[in-house]
Simulated scan of single mutants.
Amino acid sequence: MRRREDALLVDGYNMIGAWPELARLKEKSLEEARDRLLEMLADYQGFSGMQIVVVFDAHQVPGVGSSFKQYRVSVVFTKEKETADACIERLASEMAMRSRNLYVATSDQVEQRVAFGKGALRISARELLIDIGQNRKEIEKVLERPKNKRNELDNNLSLDVRMKLERWRRGQN
């Protein structure tokens, strides 16, 4: 069971390439695929309570890199000439703590081994997608529970107390 203080580093483009829905979206628009990934991870973060950092590889794009929050998920675009793998390794070293688990989501075998060497636990793209699907089912169960429309407190009060409250409600002391 993952704890609230746990953290998850996600190789963004690795997930986009591995998840069928996102791979299809990528064919139309890479930006749409990124946004959908962030939406899915935001839902997952909201339910699991884990801190999530998504890293997108920008090593072939000039610039100094950037980081920001979208849907309360931390998003990092790597610096020029920095790969997502290198950034994830750096972040794993910085975020490693004994009091929490650090997970790295990637299907890159080499990156999985390196992350494990940094003290992180690995989770494949497929495993993360399954976990997100299971969390979505749990959320749907919670939302489908019938809501009691009756005032449950009223049923637990004595007649004397209910009468007194009713008089107060009507402004009669």
Score class of each variant (00 low, 15 high):
74 S>P: 02
40 M>Q: 11
72 R>G: 05
80 E>V: 10
66 S>C: 05
72 R>Q: 12
52 I>Y: 04
57 D>G: 09
57 D>I: 09
33 A>I: 06
57 D>P: 09
77 F>N: 02
73 V>I: 02
33 A>T: 03
44 Y>W: 11
35 D>T: 08
34 R>G: 03
40 M>P: 08
56 F>S: 01
37 L>V: 07
85 D>L: 10
85 D>K: 11
78 T>H: 07
86 A>W: 08
48 S>D: 07
35 D>H: 07
52 I>M: 04
39 E>F: 09
36 R>G: 08
58 A>R: 15
52 I>G: 02
64 V>T: 08
74 S>R: 15
58 A>V: 10
42 A>I: 08
78 T>I: 01
54 V>W: 07
46 G>V: 08
59 H>Y: 11
60 Q>T: 12
33 A>W: 01
48 S>Q: 10
81 K>E: 12
36 R>S: 10
87 C>F: 00
81 K>L: 10
66 S>I: 06
68 F>K: 02
84 A>H: 06
39 E>I: 05
47 F>I: 11
67 S>E: 15
44 Y>D: 04
80 E>I: 06
58 A>F: 14
65 G>N: 09
41 L>Y: 10
42 A>E: 06
51 Q>E: 13
80 E>Q: 13
43 D>G: 14
58 A>C: 14
87 C>L: 00
49 G>R: 09
49 G>Q: 09
35 D>Y: 11
78 T>M: 03
53 V>E: 05
34 R>F: 05
34 R>H: 04
56 F>L: 00
89 E>I: 09
65 G>L: 06
62 P>E: 12
37 L>Y: 04
73 V>M: 04
86 A>R: 15
53 V>G: 00
75 V>Y: 12
78 T>A: 02
70 Q>H: 12
74 S>E: 15
34 R>D: 05
77 F>D: 00
85 D>G: 12
42 A>Y: 06
38 L>M: 07
52 I>Q: 02
67 S>T: 13
82 E>M: 15
46 G>M: 03
87 C>R: 15
78 T>C: 01
46 G>T: 07
50 M>I: 06
78 T>G: 01
38 L>H: 13
59 H>C: 08
86 A>M: 13
81 K>V: 01
38 L>R: 14
87 C>Y: 02
70 Q>T: 03
72 R>F: 08
53 V>A: 00
81 K>P: 06
43 D>A: 14
49 G>I: 04
88 I>P: 00
45 Q>D: 02
74 S>V: 11
36 R>Y: 07
60 Q>E: 14
63 G>S: 13
35 D>Q: 07
80 E>G: 09
63 G>K: 09
59 H>P: 00
52 I>E: 05
46 G>K: 08
37 L>P: 03
58 A>N: 14
